[in-house]
Design a protein around this nucleic acid. Structure first.
Lengths: 284, 284
DNA sequence: AATAGTAATGTAGTTTTATTATATTTTTGT
DNA sequence: ACAAAAATATAATAAAACTACATTACTATT
């Protein structure tokens, strides 16, 4: 709970002098956080240790710590919290909500990611003879994006959003090939089949999917994460953002592993793209 | 401005030692606010007065005051700050950096968006006879994603990532059709041509692009935003995330405008998708 | 390349601030 | 009214922050 609210709510539980302190703080929290313990004590007409005890009673380490907590509760901007869009939200309101929910989801996703898996995936990718990215539905565009990115690395890379093409491609895969499967739920039947198919043909299978999902168990290397349920709009939103950022992370890991000379290459690719533009300017 | 952002932005203006202090704070602001000046100085491997000078340089009265400000900015808006990936970053470190940079970019994007334009775009989209999404390169996958989303709305929707197909499609467009063009820079020649072509044929042209870019000027309805330069990896990252979220916003606006009965439809689409899955579970 | 000047950083001492230990007062219950 | 307990204050101690000044590291100029 917010510290200021806590002071307010505990008002009755305080002793006489402590209440004096609370009153002073409530009447002007801004002053409180900028005062020393001595000043505050004088304002409340109590002794310094009383103020100190007051702070500890509110589960803080002492006066400076209490000020910190108080300062935070004064800056009462609810940080990125996932909020549902309501029927009568204004454009301004639902825009903000969707952006903030997206950010909040990325945050939870980040916290749930196993960087050891990331590192292994980068290992595998850097050594790949051929990389394929497969996804279906909303995840197909993530695969598409991944293809675009790795294509710049000058590695053989494929992406199909057609189930049959995906199957065919997997049947032709060999030892040294890497198949990256993208699925939010990790329950899409055909993708699970494809994972098995690829393994049977000796390819390494990286799965960007949910922890403990069926897909994650059939992959040779699952890169799992937890993404909060998509909002009440019946559309996939947060999940694919997190997937895209994972792709970014893998791509970045890839370039880091390849070293500085490799990045010169990328620069060249970027230069070439400039010619399709009206002016000097970065990426597409 | 938010103190944490300020630290980030002033990085270049700092002296060598002050930068060390800044890095320590940025890498773990939570630790910073709970440390004494001595501890922080030791962590940054500088002297205490250096930390003090650092604080004053950021327009605070001193170290305790700085901590207060920092605490507020942590509670307040942007806990995420864009940081560059370094050559020798660990997987854990670059993963965090990329996620946080992504979130920070979304935040700046959000702040720069004109919700009036969003609202108009939703207007136009809901009345469209046919919707086309076009992008090239990294923006192509955004277009692809948009198609997937609007397809569920049961509206005629197209997406091509081939320039010629895009042209042909525009030539055949009519009054009442809507063309959505996606480009981070807004300088891609062929997309600008396409915008003109579509207008000549009476279509409404929505441009998801940079403010004041050539593309934004030829659209009938530019939905512009500012996305901080992509990181020093020569790859498009933040920009397309913001574009995707804009798509989400437009899609959400669309369903809101269509009312509750329409959302029943979406639910049905979702139900159907379940059959392709191993178990009960949401979206792809 | 040497040197004066300037900026940056660190050392050590000083002041301020917070905390602890203990004494005093107030409250409460019998 | 008095003892016991709780609350509060005083004074001493410890911790933290700050200041003045010394040293070092740069920059530019000859």
């Amino acid at each position: 709970m917010n510290t200021l609210e806590k002071v307010q709510k505990s008002l009755t539980h305080f002793s006489k002098s402590e209440r004096k302190v609370a009153e002073v703080i409530l009447s002007s929290p801004q002053t409180a956080i900028h005062s020393s313990i001595a000043t505050l004590a004088k304002m409340a007409d109590v002794s310094e240790p009383t103020v100190n005890r007051f702070c500890r009673r509110l589960d803080t380490k002492g006066f400076p710590d209490f000020k910190l907590h108080l300062a935070q509760s004064l800056a009462n901007g609810t940080p990125y919290v996932s909020r549902h869009v309501e029927e009568d939200d204004s454009p301004d309101s639902y825009t903000t909500k969707i952006f903030e929910s997206s950010m909040a989801s990325l945050d939870t996703a980040r916290q749930s990611i196993d960087t050891t898996a990331i590192n292994k995936a980068v290992d595998v990718l850097t050594q790949a003879k051929k990389i394929s990215f497969f996804g279906l539905g909303a995840s197909a565009s993530v695969a598409h994006d991944a293809q675009n990115k790795f294509f710049r690395f000058n590695v053989p890379v494929i992406s199909f959003d057609d189930v049959l093409m995906q199957r065919m491609s997997c049947i032709n895969s060999n030892e040294g090939d890497v198949v990256v499967l993208i699925s939010h739920t990790g329950r899409t039947k055909s993708l699970i089949d494809i994972a098995k198919l690829a393994r049977e043909n000796g390819a390494a299978v990286i799965g960007i999917t949910a922890r403990n999902s069926p897909l994650s168990t059939v992959c040779t290397l699952p890169v799992t994460m937890e993404v909060p349920e998509d909002t009440d709009m019946y559309l996939p939103m947060a999940s694919r953002l997190a997937q895209l950022v994972i792709i970014d992370v893998l791509a970045t890991g890839f370039t880091l592993r390849r070293g500085p000379r490799f990045r010169e290459n990328l620069k060249r690719v970027k230069e070439v793209l400039k010619e399709s533009r009206i002016d000097k300017d970065p990426i597409l």
